[in-house]
Nucleic acid binder design. Structure first.
Lengths: 122, 122
DNA sequence: CTAAACTATGAACCATGGTTTATAGCAAGC
DNA sequence: GCTTGCTATAAACCATGGTTCATAGTTTAG
């Protein structure tokens, strides 16, 4: 497939696919160059990009995704450790969001939005 | 107080304080200029910056904080609506994190990290 | 054969949240 | 009065995640 076909199938802009390649998250085996230097993709690239999209949607950064690709060769224990690390990060983020929610809910229920929040010194 | 004193008291770099001013989140009443053009701050700036830090920590963007400052003059109903909007965003973010956590936990428990995640097509 | 459509590249651009740098004025100690 | 230290400004720089642009080669349809 050519890049525009991949773009349609994976629902990602052509520019993003080239960007992902530049960022190192398109494993070599999914792409080769034809004699014109055009990128030619394996059909599996579409499923692969779905996984990438899911990962991005789940909050993984490009760097983390690259780390996971690079980590495919490492031990199951190591892979599990990396995933657990991410889960811990997620839990920390959840606690922070919970705090934020409580803070905002309290502001609303106290009815003192202006005074407690960004009320000016006047 | 001069900017470096505020910096120490509020535990924010001098550069960040100037940046916040440029971004419009330092209300005028907290600062004036002395004859040398140096910034001179009201002592209340420290408490104000604590609120800003809390807000940033809670996930508010600079733009949102500016919006809240600008909104201080608007009705309580409007302020409450803005806060509720943010709470809704937080809940959406929490649901996303929950999904991510479940996804990762399932990967670990299934023991198929490589195959299901970024396993290469090989 | 020519023009439209698609591909390639590198570089510039956008937003976000700052930090760093370059250049210069001001201030206080010795 | 001179050095050190603090202040000022604008502009450049960093990372992140892309998008857009300029320029050029390729391919395909009429």
């Amino acid at each position: 497939m050519k890049i525009s076909e991949v773009s349609k199938a994976a629902e990602l802009p052509v520019s993003t696919i080239r960007y992902y390649e530049k960022m190192g998250i398109i494993p070599d085996e999914y792409m080769l160059r034809d004699p014109n230097n055009y990128r030619v993709y394996d059909d599996n690239i579409v499923n692969y990009l779905e996984v990438v999209k899911t990962s991005v949607d789940l909050g993984f950064s490009i760097g983390e995704i690259r780390g996971m690709i690079d980590g495919v060769g490492c031990s199951l224990e190591e892979q599990t450790r990396l995933l657990q690390e991410k889960i811990d990060e997620i839990e920390t983020a959840q606690q922070k969001l919970d705090k934020a929610k409580t803070y905002l809910s309290d502001l609303i229920s106290s009815g003192t939005v202006c005074e407690e929040g960004f009320g000016k010194s006047s």
